[in-house]
């Protein structure tokens, strides 16, 4: 379990902060910017998650499918 568990808190933190930014911007009537911000943050987090998923698939391949 030496994996980077901090990434969980990072993702959750980004989610919360982006939600707050979204709320603030929406309240001020700048919904377009709010959506862009959310999308950008989503892409960043998605990038992190995809990296980890890639790691997972490589692990499964090397353990079960005998390919390296």
């Amino acid at each position: 379990m030496n994996y980077d568990v901090n990434l969980i808190f990072q993702i959750a933190g980004v989610g919360i902060v982006v939600a707050m930014i979204h709320t603030v911007l929406k309240q001020m009537g700048k919904e377009e910017i709010a959506h862009w911000v959310t999308l950008l943050a989503f892409v960043i987090v998605l990038y992190m998650v995809v990296n980890v998923v890639d790691d997972l698939f490589q692990t499964i391949r090397s353990v079960f499918l005998f390919q390296n």
Partner: peptide, 27 residues
């Protein structure tokens, strides 16, 4: 917590945790 405000991030979070546990189990 995150789901209330931002469901997509909650989803990513779930995926991430699943992957981490999975990697650990794979080892």
């Amino acid at each position: 917590i995150v789901k209330e405000h931002n469901p997509s991030f909650a989803f990513l979070l779930t995926v991430f945790v699943g992957v981490i546990i999975f990697i650990f189990l794979a080892e």
